[in-house]
């Protein structure tokens, strides 16, 4: 392995470890503590007699509930727990649901073949590349619909992300957006490939391929 590749692996691994730690801390630490405060407030509210105080407490409880929900979503975006327990398909399905409710872009996910268990590093890299692709769609594609297709073949998994947006010129796009190059580099680091096809007016297709 070349020195640059070893360094890239090290940097990405360190970042992912830190992201996972923060995600767990948000979910299990801060989130759980806030939930304890929430149940305490519910108890206090139930024992209050004065309507004004009761209403004020209810208002604080509602704000706290929304904060807990946002922390849960933030933790999920950073590192979904389902990635390790249920695999990439389940994690992407969960993320797409959040993606639609965040950006209003309709998503459809299909999976064909028998899902194989991937290494944790492969799972997280695929997930990050898909997140980057979906983020680019929300920012630049002007698309209302995204199709994501997972094909579990005998020797590799292929993920296709197709948007039906305005498309772009590949050469200018690759020069301007470092995110596209980073997607391809991430795939290469786990032994996979990333192919981006786009034409102005015809949307964009991103094909990720990863041998087992």
């Amino acid at each position: 392995m070349e020195k640059d590749t070893v360094i890239s692996h090290y940097i990405i691994d360190s970042q992912e470890d830190e992201i996972k730690r923060i995600s767990n801390e948000l979910h299990e630490g801060v989130g759980q503590t806030l939930y304890s405060v929430f149940t305490g407030l519910e108890y206090l509210e139930g024992s209050m007699q004065e309507p004004a105080m009761k209403s004020y407490t209810a208002e604080i409880r509602e704000q706290l509930s929304k904060t807990i929900q946002e922390i849960r979503l933030l933790s999920l975006e950073l590192h979904p727990p389902s990635l390790a327990s249920s695999g990439i398909t389940a994690a992407l399905k969960s993320y797409l649901k959040l993606y639609t409710s965040t950006y209003g872009i309709i998503t459809e996910l299909t999976s064909a073949g028998n899902e194989r268990r991937l290494l944790e590093k492969q799972n997280i890299m695929l997930y990050r590349v898909c997140q980057e692709a979906l983020g680019n769609i929300a920012k630049y594609a002007d698309a209302n619909l995204v199709h994501m297709k997972l094909n579990w073949e005998a020797e590799k998994v292929i993920i296709e992300i197709k948007d039906f947006g305005k498309g772009f010129d590949i050469h200018t796009g690759l020069a301007k957006r470092s995110g596209l190059a980073a997607m391809c580099e991430r795939m290469e680091l786990i032994g996979g490939t990333c192919l981006i096809t786009s034409a102005i007016g015809n949307g964009t297709l991103i094909t990720l391929s990863l041998p087992y």
């Binding site: 929304k66 904060t67 929900q69 946002e70 979503l73 639609t100 409710s101 965040t102 950006y103 209003g104 872009i105 309709i106 209302n144």
Partner: peptide, 12 residues
């Protein structure tokens, strides 16, 4: 477009 109809605001 009609994306706004499907967007749920994220608190904060």
């Amino acid at each position: 477009n009609d994306k706004y109809k499907r967007i749920t605001l994220r608190y904060g």
